[in-house]
Design a protein around this nucleic acid. Structure first.
Lengths: 229, 229
DNA sequence: TGATTTAAGTGTAAAATCTACATTAATAAA
DNA sequence: TTTATTAATGTAGATTTTACACTTAAATCA
């Protein structure tokens, strides 16, 4: 019968997280060297199994927290992967999530203990199972999302310079952007606060710091902007 | 241990399909009156369970075929739903797919036997479980996809008029479009064949029929167009 | 048969947006 | 005080988008 509930076909559910970070070297992902079989010693996304009493979103949050110590992180579900032998041990459907974190905030101690490591997305090692595909998918989604939602800021410190924001978008889109055009497009959204404070780290002149103004963004009830960069 | 494979937490996997069709009354979805518990007699998306030896895409294809008799249909995975009690019988994670079909082609006999029925998306009944949410999600995704990929044609007969195409996009976007601007934007994509044949059904003058020219589209290797309608 | 009706088909001017591009400003270091 | 370095800023031309109305073709009707 087509619709009978049958436990014969139950499967394991995994959650794998593409954890993005950004620093002055560009866009990065957090990978882990597996310390268990199969594929022990190979690089992998950070993941875990869904528990009986847990929803997928919470599993993703739990896994992220376990490896980074972070809470309240932007995460979004991406896609369910179900190739029969994608995990050679047992039939496992994996649902991927991506997370955007401020790379300065994670618990360095923790990731060291887990043999986790940041890799530039342009320079990451080959990953187990279908994890390479997951990463590519996540980057495509990130490109799209950052063009319609103000989520790029999740990857930056609370206070950031226009240059950092520009370089972030360049890293995400993987193309050069015109500085003046970029700044005027960002400014036209009117969702940033320009502070009186300057960051003196990168130049003699110093550059103004900005914060994302979430209230202003929500006030405008933007249905979604369209950033044509 | 965080990563041990444990069959304690296995779950059932379902696939639910949002099947879109289009006719001169607008955009429609195919729903079924459930003939089994729970929620017997209520309206529901068409769905089924993932089998042990089956990938999600194939489960979606199988389910669509079972209820409509159709093959080679455009389908896309949407999202995994995992609320603990979303299905009251047993923990079930459902992965939704949407399908675009030419409404003239489905097997009317079959859908009658299954007590399935077409509903206007503006006028559909309340659905069981989280299926309403799935439908909303599918419409959002359809809006986005049709704006960057030539998939709207999947909902039309092979030969269609500009008016039909216009009304299709109006139904998907749920807003009125300017006829002349629409036609020139579509024409600028250069992916249609204008036939010598006219459809005489809707006017005295008759209106030219078009087909989607897939070869021309692929030739251009469009990375994705951007239809700003 | 010619008058009427109906939807099809077509073009443009003004507004808005996007693109390309170069100089001055501020400051610390030498 | 000169030099070096990055920050900050505006505009003209090109392109795209928008708003908008009349003519055409053919069947039906008087």
């Amino acid at each position: 019968m087509l619709n009978s509930y049958s436990s014969a076909d139950k499967a394991l559910l995994a959650v794998d997280c593409i954890i993005f970070g950004f620093d002055n070297q560009g866009l990065k992902i957090l990978l882990i060297k597996r310390d268990f079989e199969p594929e022990k010693g190979k690089w992998s996304l950070i993941g875990g199994f869904l528990k009986r009493d847990e929803v997928l979103d919470n599993a993703a949050i739990r896994i992220l927290n376990t490896y980074t110590g972070l809470n309240d992180i932007y995460m979004e579900q991406l896609y369910a992967y179900s190739e029969i032998d994608r995990d050679p041990v047992e039939r496992t459907i994996s649902v991927s999530y991506y997370a955007l974190i401020n790379i300065e905030n994670h618990n360095a101690e923790l990731i060291k203990n887990y043999h986790a490591q940041w890799f530039s997305i342009t320079d990451a090692p080959n990953l187990i199972f279908d994890h390479n595909e997951m990463v590519e998918h996540a980057i495509r989604r990130l490109r799209y999302r950052t063009s319609i939602k103000p989520i790029g800021f999740e990857l930056l410190p609370e206070k950031f310079t226009m240059r950092q924001l520009l370089e972030l978008y360049e890293a995400i889109l993987s193309k050069e952007l015109d500085k003046r055009n970029f700044i005027s497009k960002i400014n036209s959204l009117e969702i940033l606060n320009k502070l009186d404070e300057k960051d003196m780290g990168s130049s003699r002149k110093g550059s103004y710091l900005y914060t994302f103004n979430k209230e202003k963004y929500e006030e405008k009830l933007l249905n979604d902007f369209v950033l044509n960069l």
